[in-house]
């Protein structure tokens, strides 16, 4: 899969509208685009819609694409904007909703602007971090993905990777360190901290 993505002819195939090439792009970018969209829309199905629509836009504009990184940037931006549009539409619909009592409207309005800024920041961070997850060495990536993101018990992860549970823990720790280092090197740790607000509020 990795090799297919790095194929120098891939961009030509995209420009030709080759379905298989689009699938390769989807396979490679779906996770980070989903991470981005999920922060903005928080409903799985809406995220699927937004990404599907983004790919349709790519199909429409395929001939303008100059490189795979251009495609990446195009999808990133298009899907972010589609999500923001969906958010706005949702809010407009809520505004038209006459049944809603006045005090609900008030409390929503005051927080809406901060909320949108915050969401965009968070979405960008999600996209960035996923790209970084993709760059991790395979064993770290798999360990991190399974045990941290999918919450698979350490025992099973160990069995899948053919290492001890302790090694899995070490992998996870290494992956976390690397991701954090990447975030800090891009000056993103401040963004990261924005989460504290939300997390403190949700803390068990």
């Amino acid at each position: 899969m990795e090799q297919e993505y790095l194929d120098p002819l891939l961009i030509e195939k995209i420009r030709d509208g080759d379905n298989q090439a689009f699938k390769i792009i989807m396979d490679h970018l779906h996770e980070r685009l989903a991470a981005l969209a999920f922060q903005l829309l928080s409903h799985r199905e809406n995220v699927e819609d937004a990404i599907a629509q983004g790919f349709l836009k790519l199909l429409e504009h395929r001939e303008e694409m100059e490189s795979i990184s251009h495609v990446e940037g195009f999808l990133h931006e298009t899907i972010r904007n589609l999500c923001l549009d969906m958010l706005r539409k949702d809010q407009r619909r809520k505004k038209l909703w006459e049944l809603r009592p006045a005090w609900v409207a008030r409390s929503e309005e005051t927080t809406r602007e901060n909320e949108a800024d915050y969401k965009v920041l968070r979405a960008e961070l999600a996209y960035f971090l996923w790209a970084e997850v993709g760059k991790l060495p395979a064993h770290l990536r798999i360990a991190y993905r399974l045990s941290v993101l999918e919450k698979v018990p350490a025992k099973e992860v160990a069995a899948q990777l053919g290492v001890s549970e302790r090694t899995v823990r070490t992998y996870v720790q290494q992956a976390t360190e690397e991701l954090y280092a990447a975030a800090v090197s891009k000056g993103l740790h401040i963004l990261l901290i924005l989460f504290l607000l939300r997390m403190l509020a949700e803390k068990n």
Binding site: F38, Q39, A126, L129, W130, V133, L149
Partner: peptide, 10 residues
């Protein structure tokens, strides 16, 4: 904080 962010991807 990081996990919460990237989880959307899976």
């Amino acid at each position: 904080a990081m996990v919460g962010t990237v989880r959307g991807g899976v």
